[in-house]
Design a protein around this nucleic acid. Structure first.
Lengths: 191, 191
DNA sequence: CGCGAACGCTACGAGACCGTATCGGCACAT
DNA sequence: ATGTGCCGATACGGTCTCGTAGCGTTCGCG
């Protein structure tokens, strides 16, 4: 990716991280084993331990490598920016591999402080994207200055995350639009 | 509870179910072990296996025993009924022991079909409470007849579940009221 | 092209856990 | 009261997993 010339060590490291992420997505954090990671990645167990001190650290790094932050648009329309923002964060974070990991990660995060920090940081980061969009709208006067931004983000993100994680249904663009429109109506925003 | 005269076998069985629920709430489904259940409940491992064929069955029964369905009010006010409904389901299902179990259960439910059915049934049951309240409002004419009930329930339940499970914050009565009011404004319901 | 560092393979000890078996003792119904 | 059936304690075999170690092989830098 970054360099087409990859040293042997780097290739092994990357294979391990990939296999770990795949396994966490498939069987969850608890059932992920070093032996299976070795088997899938084609990297020897001894080599894995040369790169990562423990299974916990490996999992944290593997998850960390899966996270990418989408960019927020600035069209001047609160509605469009929110839809774009939540479509982006939902697709980036809850579709594909990371989406399959989330429940297991959140569960494991209850007991593993390091994973807890990671999951919380991930959640906060996504909320901050929406917060940015909303605060820009407040600055424009499209939203009242005394709006409860935190509540607003929860009202928007809640139904989408609930649909994905609890109901295990796809988050369609229609749902995103419906959620955004419902919440914005409350604040009398022109559409 | 149901009978103050409890045979020895019944007492043992109940102790096991209790200890199992406690353990699942504390350390999750995966880290819950029969030996620890035996140790905590004061019931011998051999006795546990006389009552339950496997750890999986035991966990399912223990979780099942934790579930109770709150009753929905019928005050004639959609807003009041919704607030009562979601306060009730939230308190009953996400506070206390069951709340501590949920993430681990939902994770385990991804791989265990039996747990999957249980969790899904639990979710559906709670949604049906809200659906009942909404349909009564439609019948009264308080909501348009063509309202998307399923979407409406998601809009209401989503932020509350998200607050509890993802943000790991308490679901206050203020939050419930704010969510209900926001969603109902969209449908121009008098408050 | 040569040498050292890193790799793959295999085996190992320790510990956790499951599910079964054995056996002595206590509860509960008759 | 008395015996039968269920319980508690304990031990066991088997499996899985972690993390370490030894050893031959191969990559890649100079």
């Amino acid at each position: 990716m970054t360099e087409s010339t990859q040293t042997r060590s780097e290739r092994a490291r990357q294979s391990v991280l990939d296999a770990t992420a795949d396994l966490v997505a498939e069987v969850g954090v608890e059932r992920t084993t070093i032996d299976e990671i070795a088997s899938r990645s084609g990297v020897a167990k001894s080599t894995i331990y040369r790169h990562f001190p423990s299974k916990e650290v490996l999992v944290v790094e593997a998850v960390h490598a899966c996270i990418d932050i989408p960019i927020v648009t600035d069209t001047g329309s609160l509605r469009d920016d929110l839809i774009s923002c939540f479509s982006g964060t939902t697709k980036a974070s809850y579709d594909g591999r990371l989406g399959d990991m989330m429940l297991s990660l959140m569960d494991a995060a209850q007991r593993d402080p390091e994973l807890g920090r990671l999951v919380r940081a991930q959640t906060d980061q996504k909320r901050r994207l929406a917060t940015t969009v909303i605060e820009r709208a407040v600055a424009r006067g499209d939203l009242p200055a005394d709006v409860d931004v935190d509540l607003l983000v929860t009202l928007l993100a809640g139904p989408l995350v609930y649909t994905k994680l609890v109901r295990r249904q796809r988050v369609t663009d229609e749902l995103v639009a419906a959620v955004v429109d419902t919440v914005l109506t409350r604040y009398s925003v022109k559409q």
